Simulated scan of single mutants.
Amino acid sequence: MVMKICHVNLASGYHGGENQTLQLIKQQVALGYELTVVANPKSPFIEAVRQLPCRVISASHYFHAHGAKITAGYDLVHVHEGRAIYWALIQKLLHGTPYIVTRRIDNPLKKKWLANLAYHQASAVVGLSGDIVAKIHQAYPALVTHKIPSSPVTYPSDDSTVSDIHKRFEHRFLVIHAANMLQHKGFDVTIEAARILQESNPKIHFALLGDGKARPDLENLAHGLTNITFCGQQSNMGSWFAAADLQVHPSYTEGLGSVILEGLNSGLPVVASRTGGIPDIIEDKISGLLIEPGDSQALADAILTIQSNPELKDSLCTGAQQKLTTFRIEHTAQRYQDIYQTIKSSL
């Protein structure tokens, strides 16, 4: 029997969570699901979904776009973003459709009355990492919880763009740090590692890929450093992954780190922080290298270790490919289907 799922993501922007939601939707389309997607008209996400054989419903607020016809005959609603849980709650209270929640951030859950009601009404909650699941348990120990990670997105690379990047950073060992420029993403740690390495290892160059409200402060912090380039937000990450020698991601907190999965999937070695869900992806010295959050000296040392040891680099890349087996979309989509079917059979 065909699965009928209503996905809800009301984010106005387009970041890793929306990319992951889109990837799951594409896989479910390939599996023959009948899908409805409720999305924010201001987000690029809704335009991407409109390219797929799905019914698309526009809603800029969780009070909007409710009705019995939206989920009539559907198995459940799948929530992918914080405000969307309230849309699912209202739809359930009005029309009885059950829902599950995928929680992607590692912040402690705020136990306000509406959030309490929304989580207690959920048939199941999924965390992307063991750390997120633990925080869900801490707030709501009676909830049915599961751990299902993000899946790596494969980006195309353009040979001409890769060649341009190589020319731009010719004769350099290119280290990339790709993320929204927010305080918790650890760009300050990368900049301090660059400061440590500038004099002793001028061949190592850092390309910071991203933008955000922390960028002016970060540019001030990096003032005078010649081994850092602020490249801005990129739409061609596949080419950057192909051109780089190493990826770093020294976050202070991280739900999982989908960009780490993408880098590993592209064949890059990765150095990242031992925080949040990152250790679910990176086993130290097996599928990457881990450092303690905020330790710029350890980051500099790890970069030097990989630069000077091609055998270690190859070993980490091999270990990463083995680790990624259980993160593939074919595997994670099946995990979700198992949850859907369990809920459906219990009704």
Rank of each mutant, 00 (worst) to 15 (best):
G224K: 04
A244D: 09
A242L: 05
R215A: 05
I228R: 01
A242R: 09
R215N: 04
R215E: 07
H223D: 13
M237S: 11
L218M: 02
P216I: 10
S239H: 13
L246P: 10
T226Q: 15
L221C: 02
I228E: 01
A243F: 06
T226M: 14
R215V: 00
D245C: 04
H249P: 05
A242S: 11
S235Y: 15
G238V: 10
A244P: 08
A214G: 01
L218Y: 00
F241Y: 15
A243M: 10
Q234Y: 09
G238Q: 13
A214C: 02
C231V: 02
C231P: 00
N220C: 01
H249L: 14
Q233A: 12
H223R: 15
L225G: 02
S239F: 12
T229W: 03
L246E: 09
A244F: 07
E219N: 12
H249I: 05
Q234C: 12
L221F: 00
I228F: 01
N236P: 01
F230N: 08
H249G: 08
W240E: 09
F241I: 13
R215T: 01
S235P: 03
G238R: 11
D245L: 04
F230T: 07
L246D: 08
D217P: 06
A242Q: 11
T229L: 03
G238A: 14
L218I: 04
V248P: 12
H223W: 11
T226R: 15
W240Y: 15
Q247A: 14
N236Y: 10
R215Q: 11
C231H: 06
A214F: 07
F241H: 15
A222S: 02
S239P: 14
W240Q: 08
S235T: 15
L221G: 00
E219I: 06
L221E: 00
R215I: 05
S239G: 12
Q234D: 11
G224S: 04
S239Q: 14
A214S: 00
H249E: 02
Q233H: 10
G224Y: 12
N220G: 07
W240H: 09
A222E: 00
G232Q: 11
D245V: 02
P216E: 10
A222I: 07
A222R: 03
F230V: 05
Q233E: 14
P216K: 10
R215C: 02
G232P: 12
N227A: 05
S239N: 13
T229I: 04
T226Y: 09
N227R: 02
L221H: 00
D217N: 13
V248M: 02
N236F: 04
L246G: 12
R215S: 03
S239M: 14
P216Y: 09
T229K: 02
E219Q: 14
A222G: 00
W240T: 11
A242M: 05
M237K: 14
D245M: 03
D217M: 13
D217V: 07
I228T: 01
L218V: 06
T229F: 06
S239L: 14
A242D: 08
A242T: 13
F241E: 06
S239I: 15
G232S: 09
R215M: 10
G238L: 11
F241G: 07
Q247R: 09
M237N: 11
L218T: 03
L221A: 00
E219G: 08
